[in-house]
Design a protein around this nucleic acid. Sequence first.
DNA 1: TCTCAACAGACCGACTGACTGTCTGTTATA
DNA 2: TATAACAGACAGTCAGTCGGTCTGTTGAGA
Lengths: 214, 214
Amino acid sequence: MRIVKDAEERKNEILDAADELFRLKGFDGTSTNDILEKVGIARGGLYHHFKSKEDIMDALIERYKVRLLGAAREIAADRSIPVNERIVRVVMAMNISGGSGREIMKHIHKPQNALMHHKMQKVIISGVTPILAGIIREGIEQGQFSTPFPYECMEVAVAYASSIFDDTVEMTDEERASRIQAFIFNTERLLGAERGSLMCIARAFGGSNGGSHE
Amino acid sequence: MRIVKDAEERKNEILDAADELFRLKGFDGTSTNDILEKVGIARGGLYHHFKSKEDIMDALIERYKVRLLGAAREIAADRSIPVNERIVRVVMAMNISGGSGREIMKHIHKPQNALMHHKMQKVIISGVTPILAGIIREGIEQGQFSTPFPYECMEVAVAYASSIFDDTVEMTDEERASRIQAFIFNTERLLGAERGSLMCIARAFGGSNGGSHE
DNA sequence: TCTCAACAGACCGACTGACTGTCTGTTATA
DNA sequence: TATAACAGACAGTCAGTCGGTCTGTTGAGA
């Protein structure tokens, strides 16, 4: 039987199916037949909407990008929130690490999804860095931070954060906590911020009380 | 015709061929038939020495690892070289960026080689970071650096360096130079080093004289 | 306003070529 | 003669193609 739907709707159905399957079995581990079966369409239908399997992945990444960066921009623009707090919220929204949307990143960090991971990281780094840099510049105006390279500082922080929280390397909670400690310390140094002024970030991450365990 | 060789020799022939082909066409773009043809053996031969195509990649990475980290360790252990200079040489030996062995990295940073890139980065980061951290600790003893997190500092630096010098993102020479500038500045801050004390690193990288272009 | 032909785009499913990994058999070497 | 190195036919899978079919829409004529 043949069910005709609006193109956008079908595309989204395909993306939803691919999303779940890639999450479960990875990109390489998922065949187009798996997607076909899940959506309930035939090969021709899929290749009518997407020109290749990789094209599906790119569309998925684009969807993530719009969602994640949209949320980040919204938060970043809200001047009623203090700078520190805004940074935390942007980072949480990107779920580079823990937080509500951690789900999205989880499956992207599997070795089978290396290409997806790579593309996603590029999108995140190139997208969120200027947003964060903008907030940092506000902080500099307010005398909270001091660096000639706000953009590059954020580049460092984002690159490090996404390498630390890469789920392919397994870590004990203790290791994780001390990484976060070091991350905060290092970021404060980079930004020329007062010691402890970014501690709120550590507190925001996954219920850890900041790395020390007394 | 049938030519029998010592297993190690054959393995290396296969790795050499794979190395060159992956470099040219990427991992996914290279078929096992390509390798077979280049080496001049049949399928059975290849699968006698390696259990899968990915196994070949892993062996290649292992070979890189031994070569790169061996060189790095040798340099790091040479106490006759001053700390600063040793850092430069280790970094050059790893060719995370410019330098003699840049070749090796070049093809690894192609999107088609995402998985290889990912595995390689893991090996580098986990291998070279402790080596560099050791040198930094010497520098701390000598009063040159000051940080409670030498290991994590190097983790940051290595992660950032390998993200900056990722050849998948294209950069003008000017951008590159200013990235290096920022990188040096940030690293000095992280290490609590005197301003300009790491400038020798910038000078060492690819003929750039430190970012300014006169 | 109703009808119907013409069209565009959504969808089908058999087919192709390519590729990885296996298996049985063969040759060389210690 | 036993064992490791190798050959090559083969099976199974998968991504992508292609000619064709179905369906919703549109617009002209009655």
